[in-house]
Deep mutational scan, measured.
Amino acid sequence: MGFKLLSKLLVYLTASIMAIASPLAFSVDSSGEYPTVSEIPVGEVRLYQIADGVWSHIATQSFDGAVYPSNGLIVRDGDELLLIDTAWGAKNTAALLAEIEKQIGLPVTRAVSTHFHDDRVGGVDVLRAAGVATYASPSTRRLAEVEGNEIPTHSLEGLSSSGDAVRFGPVELFYPGAAHSTDNLIVYVPSASVLYGGCAIYELSRTSAGNVADADLAEWPTSIERIQQHYPEAQFVIPGHGLPGGLDLLKHTTNVVKAHTNRSVVE
């Protein structure tokens, strides 16, 4: 069995187990497998329904001669939608809004960016022009300005110390501490036991640490421990890039980060 097929099978099995364990909360999309990078042309966006009122959005972007996937989250909030992270750029984010209108038909009224990198804030200006209120932590807003990236308009308070959590509509926002970046936030959907790890969490097929220019490698494993301790009931975990899975993604990420750190020390 090929690795790609095995990865998709694991996603399907995880979703099936969740649907059985929580039949009222989960209505997993039966329309197909989780979209992969090879299936999404740059400039297009796919939506994948995880649970009743919960979707991931998947886009792709060219970077350094390669094409990478990027995940975000959409959560229903009454007759409105909360968006977590842009679709990595203005063109993708405009396509995301169009796809949401086509498939869901509810307005996106608020959006949260989970850290300051372009795959999370690139497209904020498109959201703002569409009347979406954009939010991020003060740290993310400051770092985005320093980096020359787009800056969300509103500040999220109460997320300055490791372990801080605040309720934001249908989700809980959690600051686990520094990891992929010093400002990275985690998003949890309690009604569906869905954990969105953003770039602080890796997919299972990833074996290298990737972009760690703004990471705190020493603190990252401790931050992941905080996530595990705060959300032990999480059933569906979405990484910032690639295929979702279960809580095993947290341990896998820790292993990859520690291996990278150990290699760096040896070198």
Rank of each mutant, 00 (worst) to 15 (best):
G197N: 07
L159H: 09
A19E: 05
H230K: 14
R263D: 08
L13F: 15
F174Y: 14
A133V: 06
E172R: 08
S113P: 04
P107L: 06
R128C: 03
S162D: 05
N184P: 01
I50R: 11
S155V: 14
S38T: 05
K251E: 09
V124R: 03
Q228K: 15
R76G: 07
V256Q: 14
A15I: 06
Y202D: 05
G122F: 02
K102A: 12
L195R: 00
L247D: 03
V108L: 13
K8V: 12
L82Q: 12
V45D: 06
I201E: 00
E80W: 06
G148S: 11
L83N: 13
S137T: 03
R142L: 14
T254N: 13
D183V: 00
D216H: 03
S27W: 10
V237Y: 07
I104K: 08
G105N: 15
R226M: 10
V256P: 01
A200M: 10
D164E: 06
K8L: 14
S38Q: 15
E145N: 13
Q103W: 05
I40M: 04
D118L: 08
F63M: 14
L5R: 13
L81A: 10
E101H: 15
Q229M: 05
A178T: 05
K8T: 06
G169W: 06
L83W: 01
L5I: 12
E203R: 03
T93Q: 14
I74C: 14
A94Q: 08
R226S: 12
I104Y: 15
T153E: 15
H241W: 01
L9T: 09
G122V: 07
S160V: 11
G163T: 07
P138D: 06
E225K: 03
V237F: 03
S62R: 11
I201A: 06
L204A: 05
S181E: 00
R206A: 04
L143G: 12
C199N: 00
R128T: 11
F63Q: 07
S264W: 04
R167G: 04
A259H: 10
S27K: 06
F236P: 10
A144Q: 11
P138Q: 13
D119V: 01
L185N: 15
Y12H: 03
L217R: 05
E44T: 11
G158A: 12
T93M: 13
M1W: 09
T109W: 06
I74Y: 01
V171G: 04
A218M: 02
T182H: 04
Y34F: 05
E267S: 12
H241M: 01
G158E: 04
T222C: 08
V121L: 04
N262F: 14
E225V: 09
H180G: 00
L250K: 01
E219C: 09
A87Q: 12
I50L: 05
V37T: 08
L106T: 03
H154Y: 02
D216Q: 11
R142D: 15
V266T: 12
A130K: 15
E157H: 11
T261A: 06
Y48E: 09
W88S: 12
P239G: 08
D119F: 00
L250G: 09
A19M: 15
N149L: 08
L13H: 15
G43Q: 10
G122M: 14
A133Q: 09
G105M: 15
R120D: 06
V171Q: 00
I224E: 11
N71E: 02
E101P: 15
V256C: 13
L156D: 01
V75T: 12
S264V: 13
A25D: 09
G89D: 11
S139W: 10
V75D: 01
L10H: 11
E267H: 15
K102T: 15
A144L: 11
L247S: 13
L5V: 05
L159P: 14
L217G: 07
W55F: 13
A234H: 15
D183Y: 02
P41I: 11
E219A: 12
G163S: 05
S38I: 09
A59D: 07
A98F: 05
I151V: 14
Y196D: 03
G131Q: 10
D248E: 07
V126T: 14
F174L: 14
G131Y: 15
P152L: 09
S62M: 14
I201R: 01
G78T: 13
P190Q: 14
Y202H: 08
L185Q: 04
A213Y: 04
A234W: 02
I224K: 00
R142Q: 12
P239N: 08
D118T: 12
F63D: 07
H154I: 10
I238V: 04
L217K: 05
T114D: 04
L24M: 14
L143V: 11
V132M: 15
S223L: 03
G197Y: 00
A66W: 14
T182G: 08
F168Q: 10
R142P: 04
S31C: 11
L247R: 10
V75A: 11
G148C: 12
S16R: 15
K4W: 09
F3T: 11
V189M: 03
M18N: 02
I201D: 00
I104M: 02
V75M: 04
L13I: 02
I58L: 09
V37C: 09
L81R: 01
H252I: 08
D248Y: 03
D118K: 07
A215D: 08
S161A: 09
G65D: 04
G32S: 13
L96P: 01
A213K: 11
V124E: 05
G240F: 02
A130E: 05
P138Y: 14
V194L: 05
L159F: 07
G43Y: 05
G246A: 12
S22E: 09
E233V: 09
T86V: 11
S62W: 03
K91F: 05
E44V: 06
A209N: 02
Y135R: 01
A15P: 05
I20L: 09
V37I: 08
R76V: 08
A133E: 04
N262L: 06
T134D: 11
G72H: 01
L217D: 15
L24V: 12
L243T: 13
V146S: 07
K102I: 15
T36C: 04
G131D: 06
S7C: 03
S22C: 11
Y12L: 13
S223C: 12
R128Q: 05
V67H: 15
V75R: 01
T60P: 11
R263I: 03
S16N: 04
V67F: 06
H260M: 03
R120S: 09
V11H: 15
G158W: 08
L159Q: 02
S22A: 12
S161K: 09
D248H: 08
S56G: 07
Q61N: 11
L143N: 05
Y175H: 03
D79I: 15
E99Q: 15
V187E: 00
V108M: 13
V45A: 09
D214P: 13
R120L: 01
F63W: 09
D52E: 06
L73I: 03
V132H: 01
K91Y: 12
L73V: 05
S160C: 06
I84R: 01
A165L: 12
T60F: 03
S70N: 06
F236D: 15
A59N: 13
P176E: 00
G245I: 01
F168K: 05
D125N: 08
I201C: 11
L10Q: 13
A15C: 06
T207E: 12
